[in-house]
Nucleic acid binder design. Structure first.
Lengths: 189, 189
DNA sequence: GATCTTTGTCTAATAACATTAGACATTGAT
DNA sequence: ATCAATGTCTAATGTTATTAGACAAAGATC
C-alpha cells in the first residue's frame, strides 16, 4: 500500500546532502535517508551501492562543486589578490558545508574522484604560476598553501582554535604565506 | 567458567591503544577491545564509560603524550631551530600514531582535556616568544603555524598530498613560514 | 573462622544500523 | 492482453552498543 512512484539516484543524493549539511557525515545513514524519502531502507539499494557507495557519490559531487567554487573565485584577479580570493572562497565554502568538506577528503577508488578534484589543483597551479617559480618549487608551495588552508579550516570546524578573531588569524596566516612567497618569487609584481 | 581475575582501567586503555595504532579510530570497538582482553563486551562497562568514554580517555591520554613529546622537542634550542624541531616532532608523532593524532582533535567536555592540551600550546608560545611579537600578533602567528602543521600532517595521513617528496614539501612550508615570520619579527637573531 | 559486602564478571535482552533474499505490484513494451 | 523490467516491499541476518540482573570470588568485619 502507498507505493511511491519512482525514486531517482539524484533524489537519493539530494536527500543525503540535506542530511549531510544538517547533521554531518555521521548523520548520513541509509535509515535517515530512507525516512526522509518516505521509503524503506532496502529500497535505496536500487539507486545506490549501499552506504559506502552513497558516501562515494556524495564525495565526488561535493569535490566537483568545491572545485567549481574555487575556480570561480579566481577569475579576473592575479597575484596576491588571487591567492587571497582563493583562500577566502576555500574557507567560506568549507565552513558553509562542513559535511561536504569532510567528504571531500574521503578516499574514493573511482576515476571520477580524481577528475573532480582536478579543478581545484589546476586553479591553484594557475594562481601560483604568476610567481614564476620553478616547477618543483611551485608544487611545494602549492602543498604548503593547501596545508595551511586545510589546517585552518579543519581546526576551526573542530573548534580547536580557541577563542579569538578567526578572520584576523586567517588573514595573518595568509600574509605570512605571501610574505614568504614574495621572497622566493621571481616576478615581484 | 574461567573467570578472569581482575581487569583494570589501564588494561582496557592499553588494549584500546594497541587497536588504535593498528586499525585506526574506527577500528576501536568495545567488541574488539573485549576480545583482545578475553572478556565479554559488557564487562568493559565496569572500567570505562562506554565506547564514548573510552574514546574520551584515549583522547586525553594521547593529547598528554603528544604535548610531552612536543615539549621535549624544543628544549635547548631557540628561534628558527626551535620552530623546525617542534615541527619535525609534531609531524613525526602524528604520522607514527595516526589514530592517536586523530583522537587528539576529539571534542571532550572534561576538564582534563584542556589541561592535557595546554602543554603543546605553552611550548609553542615559548618558542614564538623569541620573535618578540605583540601578544595578539603572537597568538595569530601561533594559530598559523598550528594550522600549517595540522593541515600538512592531516593531508599526508589522508594521502591527499599526491606523490612527491613530502619531506621537501614540509621543509619548504616551514621555510615559507619562517621567512614570513622574520619580516614581522622584532628580534632578528 | 564464618558471614557479609563489594567488585567484576557473566548471560540475556534490547535497540540501531547495514545488508541480502525474495515476494509482489506497477509500468511500459510487445 | 500478455510479458518483462523496474522498483518497491517484507522478512531475516549480522554487527555493534548498551542495560539489567544473576552470580562468583575476594577482601573486610565480627
Amino acid at each position: 500500500m502507498a507505493r511511491k512512484r519512482g525514486l531517482d539516484h539524484d533524489d537519493v543524493l539530494a536527500a543525503a546532502f540535506a542530511i549531510l549539511d544538517r547533521d554531518g557525515v555521521d548523520g548520513v545513514s541509509l535509515t535517515a535517508v530512507a525516512e526522509r524519502l518516505g521509503v524503506q531502507p532496502p529500497s535505496l539499494y536500487s539507486h545506490v551501492a549501499g552506504l559506502g557507495g552513497l558516501l562515494d557519490d556524495l564525495a565526488i559531487a561535493a569535490t566537483a562543486d568545491f572545485g567549481d567554487t574555487l575556480r570561480d573565485s579566481a577569475v579576473g584577479v592575479a597575484g596576491d589578490d588571487a591567492v587571497r580570493a582563493f583562500a577566502a572562497a576555500y574557507r567560506r565554502w568549507a565552513l558553509t558545508h562542513p559535511g561536504c568538506y569532510e567528504l571531500t577528503l574521503r578516499r574514493v577508488e573511482r576515476a571520477d574522484k580524481r577528475t573532480a578534484g582536478l579543478g581545484a589543483v589546476q586553479t591553484m597551479d594557475s594562481i601560483l604560476a604568476h610567481y614564476g617559480l620553478e616547477t618543483r618549487e611551485a608544487r611545494r608551495v602549492g602543498r604548503a598553501l593547501r596545508a595551511s588552508l586545510h589546517g585552518f579550516v579543519s581546526l576551526q570546524a573542530a573548534d580547536a582554535l580557541g577563542r579569538g578573531d578567526h578572520q584576523a588569524s586567517f588573514d595573518a596566516m595568509l600574509t605570512l604565506f605571501l610574505d614568504g612567497l614574495q621572497r622566493r618569487s621571481i616576478v615581484t609584481s
